[in-house]
Amino acid sequence: MPKAYWIARVDITDPDAYKEYLARNSVAFAKYGARFIVRGGPFETVRGEARQRNIVIEFADLATARACAESPEYAEAALWRDKGAIVDLILIEGYDGVQPGA
């Protein structure tokens, strides 16, 4: 079964509220075994429009990624996220198939 990912693009509008979100989201992420692959950092926009921050979080599978997003623990943190940022968030299943050159 392929892993799954949250892919988030974020523009911070209220740094204090967003800091509170960051302090609170670890409860849900720990419970659902989340692992950060990308958490901010330098990036280049090759095409399209960018936001200030990009985040990729890995989960065991799509059901687990969805359960975390819909959990009461994450909902509590998300209240602060929504006060402090504009966020695009998708949940996506990873690819387990043949790779180029294989």
Rank of each mutant, 00 (worst) to 15 (best):
Met1Gly: 06
Met1Lys: 04
Pro2Gly: 05
Pro2Tyr: 05
Lys3Ser: 12
Lys3Val: 12
Lys3Pro: 05
Ala4Gly: 05
Tyr5Thr: 01
Trp6Cys: 01
Ile7Tyr: 02
Ile7Ala: 03
Val10Thr: 03
Val10Met: 01
Val10Glu: 00
Val10Pro: 00
Val10His: 00
Asp11Ser: 06
Ile12Cys: 02
Pro15Ser: 08
Asp16Ser: 07
Ala17Met: 03
Ala17Trp: 00
Tyr18Gln: 00
Tyr18Glu: 00
Lys19Trp: 03
Glu20Pro: 00
Glu20Leu: 02
Glu20Gln: 05
Glu20Cys: 00
Glu20Val: 01
Tyr21Asp: 03
Leu22Tyr: 04
Leu22Asn: 08
Leu22Arg: 06
Leu22Lys: 06
Leu22Gly: 06
Arg24His: 10
Asn25Thr: 10
Asn25Arg: 11
Asn25His: 09
Asn25Cys: 14
Ser26Arg: 12
Val27His: 03
Val27Phe: 05
Val27Lys: 08
Ala28Glu: 01
Ala28Asp: 00
Ala28Gln: 01
Phe29Trp: 09
Ala30Gln: 12
Ala30Tyr: 04
Ala30Phe: 05
Ala30Gly: 07
Lys31Gly: 01
Lys31Phe: 04
Gly33Arg: 09
Ala34His: 06
Ala34Ile: 09
Arg35Met: 14
Arg35Tyr: 11
Arg35Asp: 15
Val38His: 08
Val38Ile: 15
Val38Lys: 08
Val38Asp: 06
Gly40Glu: 13
Gly40Asn: 13
Gly40Phe: 14
Gly41Met: 12
Gly41Lys: 10
Gly41Asn: 11
Pro42Thr: 10
Pro42Leu: 10
Pro42Glu: 12
Pro42Phe: 08
Phe43Gly: 06
Glu44Val: 14
Thr45Tyr: 03
Thr45Val: 11
Val46Ala: 14
Arg47Met: 12
Arg47Asn: 13
Gly48Asp: 13
Glu49Asp: 13
Glu49His: 08
Ala50Ser: 14
Ala50His: 05
Ala50Asn: 08
Gln52Arg: 07
Gln52Leu: 04
Arg53Cys: 00
Arg53Thr: 00
Asn54Thr: 07
Asn54Ile: 03
Asn54Met: 04
Ile55Tyr: 11
Val56Arg: 09
Ile57Ser: 02
Glu58Cys: 15
Phe59Ser: 03
Phe59Val: 07
Ala60His: 09
Leu62Cys: 05
Leu62Ala: 12
Leu62Lys: 07
Ala63Trp: 12
Ala63Lys: 15
Thr64Lys: 10
Ala65Asp: 07
Ala65Trp: 03
Arg66Met: 15
Arg66Glu: 15
Arg66Ser: 12
Cys68Tyr: 04
Cys68Trp: 02
Ala69Tyr: 13
Glu70Arg: 09
Ser71Ile: 11
Ser71Glu: 12
Ala75Tyr: 09
Ala75Trp: 07
Glu76Pro: 09
Glu76Trp: 14
Glu76His: 15
Ala77Met: 13
Ala77Ile: 11
Ala77Pro: 10
Ala77Cys: 14
Ala77Phe: 10
Leu79Pro: 03
Leu79His: 15
Trp80Ile: 00
Trp80Met: 03
Trp80Asn: 01
Arg81Phe: 08
Lys83Thr: 04
Gly84Asn: 02
Gly84Thr: 02
Gly84Glu: 01
Ala85Phe: 00
Ala85Gln: 01
Ile86Asn: 01
Ile86Arg: 01
Val87Met: 04
Val87Thr: 08
Val87Glu: 02
Ile90Thr: 02
Ile90Trp: 01
Ile90Ser: 01
Ile92Ala: 07
Glu93Ser: 03
Gly94Asn: 08
Gly94Arg: 05
Asp96Phe: 07
Asp96Leu: 08
Pro100Cys: 09
Pro100Phe: 11
Gly101Pro: 04
Gly101Arg: 07
